[in-house]
Design a protein around this nucleic acid. Structure first.
Lengths: 144, 144
DNA sequence: ACATGATGTAATTGTTTTGGTTACAAGTAA
DNA sequence: TTACTTGTAACCAAAACAATTACATCATGT
């Protein structure tokens, strides 16, 4: 099991749009950097657009960020690309036997724990922004 | 995307073995409580056995916990049933273009963040034991 | 107006994972 | 021996992913 790479690609796309501001980042160009098909990029960019993170116009090459780098958290991207449903990171077997002490109670016992675990994970993304990503990339670049 | 219910079922199995100590919990019996096939239960119990959490003997019905309830964390179970690989909760697109500023650095920038998020999630399970689960179930039971 | 090139989106495909199912070898015990 | 259990292997349908192809639609420059 693994969470879709749409999330990583989404971060890649947004960072690239910013670091490549001077020229238009077409889906073809981004696809070259990500190393995938342009249609895949357009699909993910569609999600980012729908979430209000970027502005794109049909027919015109490129996209721009809707907000400041520091105003876009990784959690925003995570939600935009829809890689994990709300409180459904962990699946629970359904219809455990209601006549059994464990079967009757296991779901309500486990659910809040799974929710807490998912929240702990998501909080990491809430505390990081695209600015952190871009600055980290720039720092690595300046060293080389 | 969702993490396999093997984890939830693993917790269910162990809690049931404990709460049903007085009689032997055969795979058939457990399957009834979980509401699935006995072969599925045996497969998961094989993982729990391999991880040293339970003791089972071929041919003889039932299983017993290898350690005290308080000595078995949810993280132990999580690892035992192998639902998420080490540091691979999030997948990252591979072979981004090395001639691109973003493509060259994105992986090393994102990886530690993804690891931190996964760790935050796993820590929740490290801080909970089967004892917490069983006590919670017993508490619910005593109210009814 | 028209050609060019871009985005938006649907349909298809191969691969992998999941959970369920059947079957059966091998062990245990009355 | 008989009955029951665990341990596995094999197989299947369904779902998710990422890649790919195709094409409608839009924008722009000549």
């Amino acid at each position: 099991m693994s969470i879709s790479s749409r999330f990583a690609v989404g971060i890649h796309i947004l960072a690239l749009i910013d670091l490549n501001k001077e020229t238009a980042s077409s889906s073809e160009f981004i696809a070259g950097s990500v190393n995938t098909n342009a249609a895949v990029i357009r699909k993910i960019m569609g999600m980012l657009k729908k979430a209000g993170l970027i502005e794109v116009q049909p027919g015109v090459a490129g996209a721009k960020l809707s907000r400041e780098l520091s105003e876009i958290t990784l959690f925003d991207i995570y939600k935009a690309v829809n890689v994990v449903e709300e409180n459904e990171l962990f699946s629970i077997h359904d219809k455990p036997h209601p006549d059994c002490v464990v079967g009757k109670n296991i779901q309500s016992t486990i659910e809040p724990i799974f929710m807490a675990a998912q929240s702990a994970m998501e909080k990491v993304f809430q505390n990081l922004t695209l600015e952190d990503i871009v600055k980290d990339i720039e720092a690595k670049e300046s060293v080389q």
